[in-house]
């Protein structure tokens, strides 16, 4: 990780379970299925605790006193929680229409929450402009290169938990696209270090049909990501103008993967399928990932005789309204 000293927070984040989901594999009629379960990441129940641990540690090294973020909810929860015990002032900016649980799960920490009348892309624009005028560490704006590295740990852990090997196929939800690029980078680093002997993983991107700019570009065989106006229940991945979209798309193409989208109805079915077969309650983004996996298996794009790792990145208790 790109920090010079000891981390100031996140000591208990990460190393979440990688579990084999036999009943789910049976339901999907595929040989083997694993869930990498960041719905139980510590302390705020999403993969964002990984990136925030790195971002705040770096912010401290740079001498920032205030941390901030543009968020669809999970990142705000994580920045808010981590800021408290690492001694920062904290401002989080979110779209005004987020799920109640996600708003509450930031406010409880006593931070400054700014609800912006607009979608995430508008919140992000505001934050980019604020970052030019205030000496704040916006974890996903001016600290972003450090922040993003935290996601590599998701890839490191999958390889380690599989017995130091890379999976055959992995399905990842995409919002900005950053997670896709960093799981790839994490596995590539393990390969370059000789910790895994082979790296031929196919990367699959999952998006909601109501916000699928990366999937659209993939299907149109375009290298330009055309922004969209999000309209989906999967609010945590509702980013219409994905900052890392082109990089994520490149990874899908060069690994022989695919990008697919599902409807809101399929998302809810995905949430229920995971809950009923594995006993894991994921948020809407997880429903997207499960539903896309199902679709890709049914289309024959992920072969039934292979294994697949499904990336579950958030907790269903935060998006109860959806179901």
């Amino acid at each position: 990780m790109p920090i010079d000293g000891e981390p100031v927070c996140g000591h208990t984040s990460g190393f979440t379970p990688l579990v084999e989901a036999k009943n789910l594999a049976e339901a999907l009629r595929i040989k083997k299925c694993y869930i990498k379960d960041d719905s139980v990441n510590h302390p705020t129940l999403s993969f964002k605790d990984r990136v925030v641990a790195v971002a705040l540690s770096k912010a401290k090294e740079f001498g920032f006193k205030t941390v901030a973020c543009a968020s669809t909810g999970n990142l705000a929860n994580s920045v808010a929680a981590h800021s408290r015990y690492s001694g920062f002032d904290c401002y989080v900016f979110v779209p005004y229409d987020l799920e109640t649980s996600k708003i509450l799960s930031s406010l409880i920490y006593g931070v400054n929450l700014v609800a912006v009348e607009g979608n995430y892309d508008e919140v992000n624009r505001l934050c980019a402009e604020i970052a030019m005028n205030f000496p704040w560490a916006f974890v996903n704006v001016n600290i972003r290169p450090y922040y993003a590295e935290g996601s590599k740990t998701y890839g490191f852990e999958i390889a380690e938990q599989l017995g130091f090997r890379a999976p055959k196929n992995i399905v990842i939800p995409a919002a900005s696209g950053s997670l896709v690029t960093k799981i790839y980078k994490g596995l590539m680093e393990f390969y370059q270090l000789g910790l895994i002997s082979e790296f031929k993983t196919k990367f699959f991107i999952a998006q909601a049909q109501g916000c699928a700019p990366i999937v659209n570009a993939f299907k149109e065989n375009s290298s330009i990501i055309k922004p969209v106006k999000p309209k989906t229940i999967a609010k945590s991945i509702a980013i219409g103008n994905p900052a890392d979209g082109v990089y994520a798309l490149e990874i899908v193409k060069k690994t022989g993967g695919y990008a697919e989208a599902v409807t809101d109805e399929e998302i809810i079915e995905g949430i229920k399928l995971l809950a009923e077969t594995k006993g894991i309650f994921t948020e809407t983004a997880g429903g997207v990932t499960v539903a896309v996996t199902k679709k890709l298996i049914e289309k024959g794009i992920i072969p039934r005789e292979e294994e697949v790792v499904i990336s579950i990145t958030g907790n269903g208790l935060k998006t109860q309204e959806a179901v």
Binding site: A128, N140, R144, P145, Y146, E149, S176, A243
Partner: peptide, 11 residues
């Protein structure tokens, strides 16, 4: 007219 650089995630 506002010009706002997009910030992507480093390499």
């Amino acid at each position: 007219v506002s010009i706002v650089p997009a910030i992507a995630g480093g390499s």
